[in-house]
Amino acid sequence: MTTKIFKTENAKLTVYPNGPEWDGVPAAAFGDFSCKTPDAGAEILAEAIEWVRRSGVDRIIGPMSGDTWHKYRFVSESDGSASFLMEPTNKSHEPEVFYSAGFSEISRYFSARVPLVHAAKSAPPPTDAFVIETWDGREPERLFQQVFDMSVQAFAGNAFYKPISEADFLAMYMPMVPMIKKELIFFARRPDGTLAGFLFGIPNYAEGPKTKTAILKTYASLERGAGRHLASMFHKSALDLGFDDAIHALIHDDNQSADRSTAEGATVFRRYSLLGLRPDG
Rank of each mutant, 00 (worst) to 15 (best):
E105H: 05
A154Q: 11
L274C: 09
S237N: 10
A246T: 11
K217F: 15
A246I: 05
R73V: 04
V177W: 05
S104F: 10
G80C: 02
G56E: 03
T218K: 06
L199Q: 12
G102K: 02
A171N: 13
D67G: 10
G276A: 05
E77G: 03
I202S: 14
S111R: 03
I44W: 13
A101S: 03
G197Q: 10
L230K: 07
A249H: 14
D149V: 07
A29E: 09
A266P: 00
N255W: 03
A154N: 10
D32C: 07
S165N: 06
G102F: 02
S257L: 00
T218F: 03
A206R: 08
P191E: 14
P191G: 14
E207S: 11
F130K: 01
P17A: 02
A249V: 09
I5K: 15
L184P: 00
D168P: 00
K71A: 13
I49M: 13
A159Y: 11
M176C: 04
V268D: 06
S104L: 06
S104K: 14
A249I: 09
V97F: 10
Y109L: 15
F243H: 12
N158C: 00
T262L: 07
F269Q: 00
A188M: 03
V131M: 04
A154H: 08
G197F: 13
F160I: 01
I202L: 14
R138M: 04
R260G: 10
A206N: 14
L85E: 07
F144Y: 04
T211A: 07
W69K: 05
W135D: 09
N18H: 08
S55E: 05
W22K: 07
W135F: 03
A101Y: 03
V52M: 03
L13F: 15
H93S: 05
D58T: 06
A258F: 07
V147M: 07
T267E: 13
G102I: 01
A226T: 05
S111D: 04
T37V: 05
S107M: 11
R73Q: 06
G66W: 15
D240R: 04
G56N: 02
F74I: 01
Y219D: 15
K210Q: 14
N90S: 03
R260F: 10
E223I: 02
S78I: 00
G197I: 08
I132M: 06
E207N: 10
G197Y: 15
H252E: 15
V268W: 09
T37P: 09
T194E: 15
L230R: 06
K162I: 01
A258Q: 12
F84E: 08
A40Y: 12
A238S: 11
T68L: 07
F74Y: 15
S221A: 14
P126V: 08
T213H: 12
E43Q: 11
Q145R: 11
L195A: 08
R108N: 14
D32R: 11
Y16R: 06
L143S: 01
K71G: 07
F130H: 01
Q146T: 12
P178I: 03
A120V: 11
A11P: 11
L241K: 08
V15C: 12
P175H: 06
L184N: 05
T194G: 13
A119H: 10
G281M: 10
T262K: 10
M174G: 00
A119M: 13
Y161L: 00
